[in-house]
């Protein structure tokens, strides 16, 4: 098995990059990249936070991460559909526009 410390380091960097992207990026798809990258960082930490058994990572966190990956892709798929529809309705692919409380037909 690899030196896990290095991967924890990677996770920290990736999480920071994801946070930066989430704040800075305008385009919704980039925000989704950012969230997925943060998710990967957290998945790494979940596996490394548990002590390995028999030289391999603990199977329980691995199973949790597997579930997490499927949930992440489901949420991403829905977010993409939402983004496409939002663009079709408003011509925008970012959330920067305001006046959310306006609108007559609520």
């Amino acid at each position: 098995m690899a030196d896990l410390g290095l991967y924890v380091f990677a996770a920290a960097l990736l999480f920071g990059i994801g946070v930066y992207g989430l704040i800075v990026a305008r385009h919704l798809m980039r925000k989704l990249f950012a969230i997925n990258i943060m998710g990967n960082a957290i998945f790494i930490l979940m596996v490394t936070a548990a002590r390995p058994l028999d030289g391999a990572p603990d199977p329980v966190p691995q199973a949790l991460v597997l579930t997490g990956i499927v949930i992440a892709v489901s949420a991403t798929a829905f977010a993409l559909a939402l983004m496409v529809r939002l663009h079709r309705e408003t011509g925008q692919v970012s959330l920067s526009a305001d006046n959310e409380s306006g609108g007559d037909d609520g």
């Binding site: 410390g5 920290a12 920071g16 936070a49």
Partner: peptide
């Protein structure tokens, strides 16, 4: 600053757990 801070936080947590 927020990105660096949260990255550091996650790194410290991760190393602590490791």
């Amino acid at each position: 600053p927020i990105a660096v801070g949260s990255g550091l936080l996650v790194g410290v947590i991760g190393l602590g757990a490791l």
